[in-house]
Lab assay of single mutants.
Amino acid sequence: EPLWIRPDAPSRCTWQLGRPASESPHHHTAPAKSPKILPDILKKIGDTPMVRINKIGKKFGLKCELLAKCEFFNAGGSVKDRISLRMIEDAERDGTLKPGDTIIEPTSGNTGIGLALAAAVRGYRCIIVMPEKMSSEKVDVLRALGAEIVRTPTNARFDSPESHVGVAWRLKNEIPNSHILDQYRNASNPLAHYDTTADEILQQCDGKLDMLVASVGTGGTITGIARKLKEKCPGCRIIGVDPEGSILAEPEELNQTEQTTYEVEGIGYDFIPTVLDRTVVDKWFKSNDEEAFTFARMLIAQEGLLCGGSAGSTVAVAVKAAQELQEGQRCVVILPDSVRNYMTKFLSDRWMLQKGFLKEEDLTEKKPWWWHLRVQELGLSAPLTVLPTITCGHTIEILREKGFDQAPVVDEAGVILGMVTLGNMLSSLLAGKVQPSDQVGKVIYKQFKQIRLTDTLGRLSHILEMDHFALVVHEQIQYHSTGKSSQRQMVFGVVTAIDLLNFVAAQERDQK
């Protein structure tokens, strides 16, 4: 057995438009009618409502009807409940999964919650491996369901041993009777949507819809739904939504950006999952974080739909894509998950301010006199920076000697690579993860907040409520011999709460 199987392995699926269902090699399930009293909570997966979006479509000038398939009504709160249950049931049916076995899954959280929910009911041990950027709410729900959680670096490539995929496979090879159901490759993922989600949409719309818009992560949702719609409703256009920084969209030119990270969760990847059939997507749109969270908040405030950030991405694209539809036509959007997962993220004004998705003037509360002053007023001194090749031991000596707790790590040209902190280095040394002679590049981390000289002290204040420091950066445009230009970030300084307090105190003292 291989040590790991690539999540982007070539698909062996034989589905073709027009091929009889009787030739399918898979076990198919028909939607079942729910009894009045459910035998367990797993029976509350599927049969989610279709809700008309009344205000947002009109606000953006849509002539067509805009409908939302509300997947956050599933038992675990997301569309991923469907595939989690289906993968477990299919693994039980073919004898792969037996009582007492362990389920391991690399996930952005929602599939993990679905699997942990099913594992709690069915009696399996469950280990979820997820990147650090995923919300604390997801972690809390997983723990409450009895799952064990392993976190991995957000910026690790999918084929790196440190990625959530790599760590999951390492655990599988170490733990007896453990299984990775593997949402990236498992046919049960798109089949769950082909058999149930798509049929529900067709039934709820009486077979009449002209466009379907869905955000894409593993691709199982859009693949399964689109294949069924292509068979039953061939005139329906399928629109895929991919965040900026991901590479799922086609044509490839759409993916060209210097951005590699994004805040919206559960969609987009740096590889093409095996289950994603991009041939059934008629057109791709890219979405960005700001519009995703703005539209998610709009869905909550104006439509009462308590959905997550990827739902915002989907609707932001839908109001663009559906401009081509006329009166009497219908566009369906998939709202994948609930706001429950993001209470401390985009639902929080403070978080939105820190990330730059909300401006101070958007909030009406009274601010102190210094709130709208610029960061450049602080008069920061030149920063202490270190090269990635310097040793951890030497870096600790320098920081202690100069009285700093942290320093930016830059390359020879001064471009920011990340940050090192005294606390992080000492804990890594004590844990045996690094040696004093190791290069400081081994303990770089990139989960820090950046701020510009033109940003306000109010925004800085919000950042420092949650973080010990902020890195002050400025952009530099560099022209190359080819005539092309590129933008790079340079370090201007490091600012802490002490710097802000000293500035405010000094100004008030001078005024007296």
Rank of each mutant, 00 (worst) to 15 (best):
T274F: 00
K366L: 14
E397C: 07
G393P: 07
K355L: 10
G414F: 15
A292K: 03
G403E: 10
E258N: 14
E377T: 07
E361V: 12
V494L: 15
V333A: 14
T454Q: 11
I463C: 14
E377S: 13
L325H: 00
F503R: 13
A301N: 12
E253F: 07
K320G: 09
H462W: 12
G483H: 08
K446I: 08
Q376G: 10
C307G: 07
Y445F: 12
P436R: 13
P408D: 05
G266C: 04
T496H: 08
G312I: 01
E397L: 12
T344V: 03
T421N: 04
R509W: 11
L426W: 07
K433L: 14
S287L: 09
F357A: 02
K359I: 14
P368T: 07
Q447K: 14
C307Q: 06
T395M: 07
G379L: 07
T395I: 12
N255H: 03
T257C: 08
H480Q: 14
K449Y: 15
E253Q: 14
W351S: 01
W370T: 01
G245H: 01
K286H: 00
Q326F: 09
P408F: 03
V264I: 12
T421V: 14
L347F: 04
K402D: 10
V420W: 00
E465G: 15
E324V: 15
R297F: 00
Q326R: 13
V319A: 14
L378G: 01
Q489W: 12
L429K: 09
S427Y: 14
G304R: 00
A407I: 14
E290I: 05
D405S: 09
T344W: 03
L378C: 02
E412A: 15
D270N: 03
I300L: 03
I463W: 04
V317S: 06
A249D: 00
L299M: 09
T395S: 14
Q478I: 12
L429R: 12
D270S: 04
M425H: 07
V410G: 15
V491W: 13
A413S: 15
S348E: 13
G304N: 00
K512N: 13
W369F: 09
I398L: 15
L248V: 03
H372A: 07
P368M: 07
A292C: 09
F295L: 11
K442I: 15
L347H: 03
P251S: 09
I247G: 07
T314L: 03
W371A: 09
E401F: 13
I498P: 12
I239L: 03
A431R: 10
V434E: 10
G356N: 09
S287D: 03
V472T: 13
S428M: 06
K449D: 15
Q323F: 15
V386Q: 06
E397I: 09
G308P: 01
E253W: 08
E401A: 12
I498L: 15
P251Y: 02
R340V: 06
V333P: 02
P383L: 14
E361S: 15
V494K: 06
E324A: 10
R488S: 12
V409G: 08
I416M: 14
P273H: 00
P336E: 04
F404T: 08
V409E: 08
I398M: 14
L426D: 05
Q302I: 06
D499C: 14
A311C: 08
E244C: 07
A322S: 07
T279S: 12
I396E: 08
T395L: 10
H474P: 11
R400E: 09
G268S: 00
N341W: 00
D405L: 03
S348C: 04
C331S: 03
L417D: 11
D277A: 03
V339R: 04
R452S: 08
I247H: 07
T279K: 13
D289Y: 01
I272G: 05
D499N: 03
E258Q: 14
Q507S: 13
M298W: 08
G308V: 01
K366C: 15
V317E: 10
K345G: 03
A413M: 15
L306D: 01
P383Q: 07
A311M: 05
L248P: 00
Q259N: 09
G414N: 04
V333D: 06
L453T: 14
E412Q: 14
I272E: 05
Q478F: 13
T391S: 15
H462M: 13
D282N: 15
R350G: 12
L299K: 03
R350P: 04
S310V: 00
I334M: 11
M490F: 15
F469R: 05
L501W: 03
E253I: 14
T496E: 07
W351H: 01
K345I: 02
Q302D: 15
V472Y: 03
G403R: 14
L299T: 04
V410N: 14
L500G: 08
N502Y: 12
R488V: 13
Q256C: 15
L325R: 01
V317K: 08
A506Q: 10
D438Y: 15
F346S: 04
E327P: 10
R374K: 14
E244T: 10
L471V: 15
L306A: 00
E253H: 03
D411H: 08
V317L: 11
T496S: 15
L464K: 07
K446Y: 13
V410S: 11
A249R: 02
S486I: 14
M352K: 06
R509F: 15
P336Q: 09
T364L: 09
G328K: 05
L325W: 01
E377C: 06
D467Q: 09
L422N: 09
I416H: 08
F293P: 01
L306P: 04
E365Y: 10
S486K: 14
G441R: 12
Q323S: 07
K402R: 15
I334V: 12
P336W: 00
R400Y: 14
L254M: 07
K320S: 13
G379D: 14
G266M: 01
T294K: 04
R459D: 12
G268Q: 01
R297Y: 00
I444H: 11
E365M: 12
S338I: 07
V332L: 14
D411C: 15
Q507A: 13
V375W: 07
H480A: 15
D467E: 15
V415R: 10
Y445E: 05
V415H: 11
A321N: 03
F285V: 12
V280N: 06
Q302H: 10
L460S: 08
V473Y: 14
S427L: 12
A249M: 02
L426R: 12
D277Q: 04
R278I: 01
L276V: 08
E291M: 12
M343L: 10
A318F: 02
E412Y: 11
V275D: 00
D282T: 09
L457K: 04
I239H: 01
Q447V: 11
T294A: 14
L429P: 09
R488Q: 14
A318V: 02
E252L: 12
G483N: 04
V410Q: 13
I239M: 12
K433N: 14
K449I: 07
R374L: 12
D289F: 00
E361K: 12
S246G: 03
S461I: 04
S481C: 15
E327K: 13
T260E: 13
D337N: 02
E377P: 09
L464S: 08
R374Y: 03
T421L: 15
V281D: 03
P408W: 14
L417A: 07
V264G: 00
L378W: 05
R278S: 07
K367A: 15
H480Y: 12
S310I: 00
L353A: 11
S428N: 10
C392M: 11
W369H: 05
N288F: 09
Y342T: 03
L471F: 15
L471A: 07
D405H: 10
N341P: 03
Y479C: 14
F293H: 02
Q354G: 05
N255V: 00
S381C: 13
H468E: 07
K512P: 09
G356M: 05
P383N: 05
V504R: 10
Q439W: 14
V339I: 05
H372P: 06
V280Q: 10
P383F: 09
F293W: 02
E365P: 11
E475R: 10
V386R: 02
I477H: 11
M343T: 06
T456W: 14
E252G: 09
V281T: 07
E258A: 07
D349C: 03
R488I: 13
K359L: 10
I272A: 03
V494F: 13
V491K: 09
E365Q: 14
T421A: 15
E412M: 07
V434N: 10
Q256T: 08
F503V: 15
T389F: 12
Q476S: 07
A407Q: 11
G304C: 00
E360L: 13
L378N: 03
T391D: 03
G403S: 14
V333G: 03
A249T: 02
A296Y: 03
A413N: 14
F448S: 13
P243V: 07
V332P: 00
D289C: 03
A296C: 05
V491Q: 07
I239Y: 08
H394E: 11
S461P: 14
T257Y: 08
V275T: 04
M352C: 02
S287K: 08
W369G: 09
V317Y: 05
E327G: 15
K442T: 14
L380I: 14
Q450Y: 05
E291N: 08
R297H: 01
